[in-house]
């Protein structure tokens, strides 16, 4: 059962990474990066690493995404 969940998570990680690289608009790439970090956090919890999972959630969902949105807004908007 756990093996099935791990395979599904790995498949989603590769799928969202391909979407983040080959998307047309910048906002779509950014949202795909955020979903990639969330899937990575679930994989960390299954691999018995709670400290790393907490740090990755707070930093990749809060700080990095916020900074990216401020930059995209100040350099010409959504193109």
């Amino acid at each position: 059962m756990i093996q099935l969940i791990i395979y599904l998570l790995l498949f989603f990680i590769i799928l969202t990474a391909f979407f983040a690289v080959f998307a047309n608009s910048l906002i779509s790439s950014l949202i795909a990066l955020s979903i990639l970090s969330s899937n990575l956090v679930i994989l960390f919890v299954i691999l018995q690493a709670p400290d790393v999972a907490l740090a990755e959630v707070v930093i990749a969902s809060g700080i990095t995404t916020g900074f990216f949105i401020i930059t995209i807004d100040k350099t010409g908007g959504r193109r």
């Binding site: 990639l36 990575l40 994989l43 960390f44």
Partner: peptide, 19 residues
């Protein structure tokens, strides 16, 4: 900005390797 997203993806892959 796409280049910076690429650098971020490389960082995430190395953290996954360590765990």
């Amino acid at each position: 900005i796409k280049i910076i997203i690429g650098i971020n993806i490389m960082d995430s892959s190395l953290v996954l390797l360590l765990v």
